[in-house]
């Protein structure tokens, strides 16, 4: 049977094919990626886009988590100082309620409680990076000010707004309690109980001093309850941080299995392509000089 006498196009096509395979393998090894262009695996390339978006979003959640940590810690330690201050006020109140105390001593105690009152206002005006932590969402001006016209002796100019921040896909964390709730809550009004204690000490009425001291005590237990909010927010952030880091690792693993290269396979492909190429070249070198003319002398 007659065959095509011109075999060079076929051999060249084989050569090009093995060269293309070689290039693909080299590119995969060089980039570490199996999918270098969408056409290499369109579905994986699209999934890669989504995966990269999730990774980047996850990075931002990690960033949010560490951003929030500072303000929550600051708020928590401010409330811890509030607790200390209230304890001092209680012991001052207990001293003042003691029958053997002189009126002058009671006035001195009243001054001390007043300084605690100022300290509490300062604590209520705790700020973090320029934002007041206990003003609700009115964070740009100090929420508390001493104001003798107020029954509680303190004017609250914040609001009752709260902020939430997304810290994981679909999960938000409330990041503040309004100062009105912490310092002037229905369950224990710090500011007015302190004001009452001051008034009672100034008047020298031991019964009133005792009542006011009890109220400061219940305000203390109330604020301790409020403080739990910040404590648990901080611990939620910590556990969220490790969840996000695990999530990041698992997203990266997914991405590698989507578009990453199997190095062993790519290396094998490369050596196979090289072997095919040298075999083709060897065959070409053998065949081309062959012709009947070689044997005619």
């Amino acid at each position: 049977m007659r065959v095509n006498p011109n075999y060079t196009p076929d051999i060249l096509a084989d050569l090009w094919q093995s060269q293309a395979q070689e290039q693909t393998a080299i590119q995969q090894l060089a980039t570490g990626k199996r999918v270098n262009m969408p056409s290499d695996d369109p579905a994986a390339a699209a999934a890669d886009v989504q995966n990269q978006a999730l990774q980047s979003q996850n990075d931002q959640y990690i960033q949010n988590t560490s951003n929030l940590d500072g303000s929550l810690q600051t708020a928590d330690s401010a409330l811890s100082s509030v607790v200390t201050a209230l304890n001092q006020a209680i012991s001052l109140g207990v001293q003042g309620a003691n029958g053997g105390v002189s009126s002058a001593d009671q006035q001195a105690l009243a001054l001390q409680v007043q300084s605690i009152q100022s300290q509490l206002v300062q604590l209520g005006n705790t700020s973090y990076q320029g934002s007041f932590l206990f003003g609700g969402t009115a964070t740009q001006s100090a929420p508390f000010a001493l104001d003798s016209t107020q029954p509680s002796g303190v004017l609250y100019s914040g609001n009752s707004g709260v902020n939430n921040v997304e810290i994981a896909p679909g999960s938000s964390l409330q990041v503040n309690l309004p100062g009105s709730q912490i310092f002037q809550g229905a369950g224990g009004n710090i500011m007015s109980s302190i004001q009452q204690l001051v008034t009672a000490l100034q008047s020298g009425n031991t019964t009133n001093i005792g009542t006011a001291t009890t109220q400061v005590g219940s305000a203390l237990s109330y604020v301790s309850e409020q403080r739990v909010f910040y404590g648990s927010a901080v611990s939620q952030l910590n556990s969220n941080q490790s969840f996000l880091q695990q999530e990041q690792v698992s997203l990266q693993t997914q991405d590698t299995s989507l578009v990453g290269v199997d190095f062993a396979k790519a290396a094998t492909d490369l050596s196979q392509a090289q072997a095919a190429q040298s075999a083709t070249l060897a065959a070409l070198a053998q065949i081309i000089p062959q012709s009947l003319l070689n044997y005619l002398k």
Binding site: A53, S56, Q57, Q60, N64, L68, V165
Partner: peptide, 19 residues
């Protein structure tokens, strides 16, 4: 795709310090 995600991330970042 990537830059839209960066845009949303910047908004998310803003939520931790809105001012």
């Amino acid at each position: 795709g990537a830059d839209a995600t960066t845009f949303f991330n910047s908004i998310s970042q803003l939520s931790t310090d809105p001012t």
